[in-house]
């Protein structure tokens, strides 16, 4: 078991953003957390990386990551997890990449192989290494960020809305690339998204979050039972013809 979480809550000044969540993830598994803005899905993802900032308070009965119990871990322990065991990919590369370092410098900081090879794996040409984040399109930036995350060979990638800043063709390319790299690296995925359609296409297991709680766990092919999950599915825009 890569991740084993029991009864995890995250509180901000007495208000629970995540409320008693339990979650198990096997090595190489693909799971999606689906919910709307404010449901706590991103906060849960951050708690799995020790990234909940003050005044947030994380409490749990168990928070085991790759065999290490992290519920009382300090930042130096979390640094051994971040990047190497669990990578994180955020929505908008304009904010997640360092703005005054070239892509080559940023990947070079963490990679154990040539930057050009890392870029090639995500379909970018070697000359991208000389560019700064603002000199790239959103899709290129997101690929570059993925190259950096993969350069450390994490066992799991937490991707928090990795495609919502991209237009649909770019988003589809990004998801195809993610799937391909995950298979090649035998890496697991925790996809955090508000798009249940994308989640169902990508992951065989879905956890639906509402108001900080997991209200339903849905396996591929199962019919949703919870009214909120049903409403999410009804909200998917469909072509009439």
């Amino acid at each position: 078991m890569l991740i084993d979480v029991q009864n995890l809550s995250v509180r901000f000044r007495g208000k629970s953003a995540v409320d008693g969540v339990s979650l198990q993830l096997s090595l190489g598994e693909r799971v999606a957390i689906v919910g709307e803005s404010g449901s706590g899905k991103s906060t849960l993802g951050r708690a799995l990386l020790g990234l909940v900032a003050h005044p947030g308070l994380v409490v749990s009965d168990r928070l085991s990551i790759d065999g290490s119990e992290m519920s009382r871990a300090g930042q130096s322990d979390w640094r051994k997890i971040r990047g190497r065991i669990i990578g994180l990919m955020l929505q908008d590369p304009r904010y997640s990449l360092h703005p005054t370092m070239t892509i080559g410098q940023q990947i070079g900081e963490v990679a154990d192989r040539a930057v050009g090879d890392c870029l090639a794996e995500v379909g970018l040409s070697p000359d991208i290494a000389r560019r700064y984040p603002h000199q790239m399109s959103g899709g290129q930036g997101q690929r570059a960020y993925l190259a950096m995350a993969l350069a450390q060979h994490p066992k799991l990638l937490i991707a928090d809305e990795p495609t919502s800043a991209l237009d649909p063709p770019m988003a589809a390319q990004m998801m195809a690339l993610l799937g391909e790299r995950m298979s090649a690296e035998r890496m697991g995925l925790l996809l955090i998204t508000h798009d249940i359609d994308l989640a169902m296409q990508t992951c065989p297991r879905l956890l639906v979050m509402q108001d900080g709680r997991i209200v339903e766990e849905l396996l591929q092919g199962q019919t949703p039972a919870h009214p909120f999950t049903q409403r999410l599915i009804q909200s998917i825009p469909r072509l009439p013809c």
Partner: peptide, 10 residues
Amino acid sequence: LDMTVQADIL
């Protein structure tokens, strides 16, 4: 917007 909010606005 979120998916359900998008459906409401549509």
